[in-house]
Design a protein around this nucleic acid. Sequence first.
DNA 1: TGTTAGCACTCTCCTTAATCGAGTGCTAAA
DNA 2: TTTAGCACTCGATTAAGGAGAGTGCTAACA
Lengths: 349, 349
Amino acid sequence: MMVEELDPRKKRILQAIIQEHIISASPIGSRTLAKKYNLDVSPATIRNEMADLEDLGYLEQPHTSAGRIPSDKGYRYYVDQLISRKKNEAPGVIENVENLYQDLQDVQDIISGMAKMLSNMTHYTAMVSEPKSQVSRLKKVEIMQLADNSLLLVLVTDTGMVNNKIINLDQSLSTAKISYLNKFLSEKLENKLLANLDTNYLKEVEKELLAKVDLSVDLFKQFYNEFEGAFEPGGVKVYLGGTSYILEQPEFNDLEKVKKMLKLLDQEEMLNKIINSISGSDLEIKIGQENEVEDIKNCSLVVATYYISERAVGKIGVIGPTRMEYPRVISSVDVISDILSKLISKASG
Amino acid sequence: MMVEELDPRKKRILQAIIQEHIISASPIGSRTLAKKYNLDVSPATIRNEMADLEDLGYLEQPHTSAGRIPSDKGYRYYVDQLISRKKNEAPGVIENVENLYQDLQDVQDIISGMAKMLSNMTHYTAMVSEPKSQVSRLKKVEIMQLADNSLLLVLVTDTGMVNNKIINLDQSLSTAKISYLNKFLSEKLENKLLANLDTNYLKEVEKELLAKVDLSVDLFKQFYNEFEGAFEPGGVKVYLGGTSYILEQPEFNDLEKVKKMLKLLDQEEMLNKIINSISGSDLEIKIGQENEVEDIKNCSLVVATYYISERAVGKIGVIGPTRMEYPRVISSVDVISDILSKLISKASG
DNA sequence: TGTTAGCACTCTCCTTAATCGAGTGCTAAA
DNA sequence: TTTAGCACTCGATTAAGGAGAGTGCTAACA
């Protein structure tokens, strides 16, 4: 899609229409525009310009005798050319939020807390993906005995994610065996990239282990299952915040649309698809049709990447109608993703 | 509220009205009733009976010239007197579900699986509370070292719930100290009722510990926090399934009502209040006004208790409009709560 | 040549009125 | 005690008639 250079007056008019539409959620006419914004020209002139902007694809007309609304292309131009992406939220916000959450040390808690925070700030639905397992290393693996024939397997990654699973056995293991197992597994698995701990590697480890000590095969099968979950590329959990905010948007006045949207947000795979369709850039905006997922082609996404010690690990963002308060949302997402990176880096030590 | 004995014809008519209303979701008139059900009397007679039933409080009239709808009292009579609470679902269901889920060994997975299952069966929103910590014992407490100054605290209850928390310290602990700590904590805390592990007791343990070994006070403060969460009576997590089913109910055709309901289900405390307001009986039904929580006085709850090895630990149930398919829902809740008890007892071994 | 005033025209939204139909309560007869 | 008949009620649906906001076009103007 070509991006023409617009003359200054067209720019001003486009910007005014978009800002007005973001507030009012309805088509904007030439008279309203002339009255509210000091454009120093008459409504008739504005009408001519609006017709031009429509021809260029920046505006749309719901029906002949209505005002104009921005098209996806219009929003794109607005976001790229007409607003400044300044990071400076009201000063103090950063410190406040950081203080508020600084005693959270559980990565999962931090993530869901930030999802809530972001949705509260923006009044749109927030989504945060868990740290990707692909790029994380297994920091700790430990088995502990719960009862005669039940064990607890604990896995901790260097991104701070903790997984645990109860394993029931058909035989009981001696304390000695367990501590041997722990030592063995530590050696073989810890500090390895999760991506490398695939079935092949695990099979090898199993072979080696069984050669050294007499154990039920069952145990290892259960290991597989637990690891598999961490492998699936689309299997990362996505945290939501403020789901009900979408109900406040006038574009979801229709019950059918609400239904569709809520069903969408219920499906974890969908969320994964949505958030993973965002490329690796620092702060990415997808407007309407630009989205790959069919069902959100009338929505916009503002998504940032967050980091653990400079390593890109997850995404945090906001989903709302294309008529979104981009400047405010962008700066909120920016700020919160920074805070998330900071908190999560600290927590995963 | 008095429960009169109704004559057989009134019973039949009340039952017919309720059944018809459950299907159609709209007021039922005398003509419809006479046509669809073989009541062997004319509409006029039915009208007289309906007027009587309204006087007795079993029916209501939305406006003068409409049919009748059941009142809360009417539903109550229906549930108590007019339907049989038989447990026998289509045979085979139990086995199927059990097989489907039998390899789940994680208690949290089982719970959320059963919530989904129940909501799929009933097409209403399902809610399941986690096993109460009050009645559970701490089965295992263990600290493991993740890095120089970060530890992982793992708590496992005999109800199979696993909690973990990362603890960051300002000092590093030697391996010897950690293993001493583990032994000490095991002795002092394991096999105790969680309800008894209150601040007082923990303070004592702390004193004793500090007398024996030189440790940062900080560590124990973090312990408190983790335990506190398990203490709060209202702090049990509630799992939901099929939230979007409420959108399919015609009584939630109004966007405002949907909004209210979804906001309600977003608040964990509310869910706790709702599910905890149900007394300890085996299978309890709350109809409309019978509910204590204001915002669901137009809803009905069907809630059963589930058990771990014969010990009542949690609730599982369904929330929907008062116009609910009680017979089907009751038998579903009954069956699923049994299965949940069985699975969870096995998993927490 | 770009800008503006004026005007006829269009299309949605809101209100009002009219009609339809399901259902009731009452009366009187069987 | 039951039933047929009938006038009446009230919500829901449809139709019609502005009101209002906005446009595009033409012609005049700086």
